[in-house]
Every structure is written in C-alpha cells, then in structure tokens.
Amino acid sequence: MVLADDETMIRAGVRAILATDPEIDVVAEAGNGSEAVDLTLKHRPDVVLMDIRMPVMDGLAATAEIKRTVPGTAVLVLTTFSEDEYVARALGDGAAGFLLKSGDPRELLAGVHAASRGAAYLSADVARRVIGELNRGPAGRRMARAATSRARIDALTGREREVLAFLGQGLSNAEIAARMHVVEGTVKSYVSAVFTGLGVRNRVQAAIIAYEAGLTDGDR
C-alpha cells in the first residue's frame, strides 16, 4: 500500500501500526497528493491511505485523480473531527472508506483489509459523523434525507435490500456470499443492481443510504 500524509511523525506512527500486521506491506510514502498519485501509478497498490490536508495537491484531488487513472486501487481517507465538511466530496470522488486519525489502531488495520478486499469501510463513529455532516441543517432536512433514502430502497427487491444492508456493514462480496449462501458472482450481480437502483457509484455511497434508511444496526 501507499501511505500519504504531509506530517512525518504521523506517517511514522501510522506505519508502525501497519507494521504489526504481516499481511500489510507499505511500498512507498508520499508527503503530498501529487506524490501519492505518482507513487500509485508506479506501484499500483491495492490501497492508498490518504490524508486530506496536504500541500501541492490535497487528498481530495489526489483521490479523484487516482480513481480516474488507477480505478483498481482503493483509497482510504484519513480524517479528523475538524474535517467533516470534506467527507461528502470524498464520497463523490470514490473513496473506499474513512478512518479517524484519533481512532483505534485496530480500525486502521480493519479498514485496510476491508479496502483491499474491495469492501467499503465505515466505522460506527465515522459513519455517524458522515451522516451528521450530510444531514447538517434543520431537523426537517434530516428527516427529509431519511425519507428520501427509504423511498430509494423501495425500488430494490428484497434480496437487493439484504445486500444493501450488508454493504452498510462494510462486508466484501465474498463475505456477503457466505452470509447469503450464494456464489460470489451472484453477489456481484446484486451489488450492480443495487448501485443502479439507488443511482450511486460506489459502495460507500450505498452504505450511507443503508445507514440513513435504517438498514444497519446503530442508533436508529
């Protein structure tokens, strides 16, 4: 994987956590978004761990460029509580998930593994903050978003809603297949149908709708 953060101490700390997992190999480090793009093009990693605020090119622009040029690479966005306003943009740019810099190191490892399997990763804390940012405003607006999400899932079949709930939990296609007792190819077809039915482009956008519609466990 490629690790991108402009703060040397942060990179060292994150790398130390990643080094505790023998299945994770950091092949390169970048100090800005432009370097992250170049290193991703060079190494074609499974995952890029991307800070948001960086010089030359910020993490949001770098995420969009990586998804355009190396779509097979998953980008996990590192965020802080002060950067919630950027999350919606990252969703649209195809980020595979979000991790808090102040979060549990186990979530960092879990997020990297989930992204490498092609799954979305939203920890419960991050998911609540993402939805909170998207729902910022009057209560009527928040209720309207929830109602809109529920209306959108009405267009899905029962099995597609089941798959959407699993996407909301951050499961990979293989994990969903095991839960549903079907082959992985069938799950891929369901996921494609879910994306089409909801009008979304990636698993994280689908997961947000699952949260808003109350399909996942949580505070709903």
Results as ranks from 00 to 15, higher is better:
residue 3 L to H: 11
residue 4 A to G: 12
residue 4 A to V: 14
residue 6 D to T: 07
residue 7 E to G: 09
residue 7 E to I: 09
residue 11 R to W: 14
residue 16 A to R: 06
residue 16 A to L: 06
residue 20 T to G: 00
residue 20 T to K: 07
residue 28 A to S: 11
residue 31 G to H: 05
residue 31 G to I: 13
residue 32 N to G: 11
residue 33 G to E: 10
residue 34 S to D: 04
residue 35 E to G: 10
residue 35 E to L: 14
residue 37 V to R: 05
residue 37 V to G: 12
residue 38 D to V: 04
residue 39 L to Y: 09
residue 41 L to G: 05
residue 43 H to K: 04
residue 49 L to M: 06
residue 49 L to S: 10
residue 50 M to I: 13
residue 54 M to L: 08
residue 54 M to R: 05
residue 57 M to S: 02
residue 58 D to M: 04
residue 59 G to F: 04
residue 59 G to P: 00
residue 60 L to A: 14
residue 63 T to H: 06
residue 65 E to N: 00
residue 69 T to S: 02
residue 70 V to C: 10
residue 71 P to N: 03
residue 71 P to R: 14
residue 73 T to V: 14
residue 73 T to L: 12
residue 73 T to C: 14
residue 74 A to R: 01
residue 74 A to C: 06
residue 75 V to K: 08
residue 78 L to R: 11
residue 81 F to Y: 11
residue 84 D to S: 06
residue 84 D to F: 10
residue 85 E to M: 04
residue 90 A to C: 06
residue 92 G to A: 09
residue 95 A to V: 12
residue 95 A to M: 11
residue 98 F to A: 09
residue 99 L to R: 02
residue 107 E to A: 02
residue 107 E to L: 02
residue 108 L to A: 12
residue 111 G to E: 02
residue 111 G to C: 04
residue 116 S to M: 00
residue 117 R to L: 12
residue 125 D to W: 05
residue 126 V to M: 10
residue 128 R to V: 13
residue 129 R to L: 07
residue 130 V to E: 11
residue 130 V to Y: 12
residue 132 G to M: 09
residue 133 E to V: 02
residue 134 L to G: 15
residue 135 N to S: 06
residue 136 R to V: 04
residue 137 G to Q: 08
residue 137 G to M: 09
residue 138 P to I: 00
residue 140 G to E: 15
residue 142 R to M: 14
residue 144 A to C: 03
residue 144 A to D: 13
residue 147 A to F: 14
residue 153 I to C: 07
residue 154 D to Y: 00
residue 156 L to H: 04
residue 160 E to C: 02
residue 164 L to S: 10
residue 169 Q to D: 10
residue 170 G to D: 11
residue 171 L to P: 10
residue 175 E to N: 01
residue 175 E to V: 03
residue 176 I to G: 02
residue 176 I to R: 08
residue 178 A to E: 15
residue 178 A to P: 01
residue 180 M to I: 12
residue 181 H to R: 02
residue 181 H to K: 01
residue 186 T to K: 06
residue 187 V to G: 09
residue 187 V to R: 12
residue 188 K to S: 15
residue 189 S to F: 08
residue 189 S to C: 11
residue 193 A to M: 11
residue 198 L to C: 03
residue 198 L to P: 03
residue 200 V to G: 12
residue 203 R to K: 14
residue 204 V to L: 04
residue 205 Q to P: 13
residue 205 Q to A: 10
residue 206 A to G: 09
residue 210 A to C: 08
residue 211 Y to T: 15
residue 212 E to W: 15
residue 213 A to K: 15
residue 213 A to C: 15
residue 215 L to K: 14
residue 218 G to W: 10
residue 218 G to K: 09
residue 219 D to T: 14
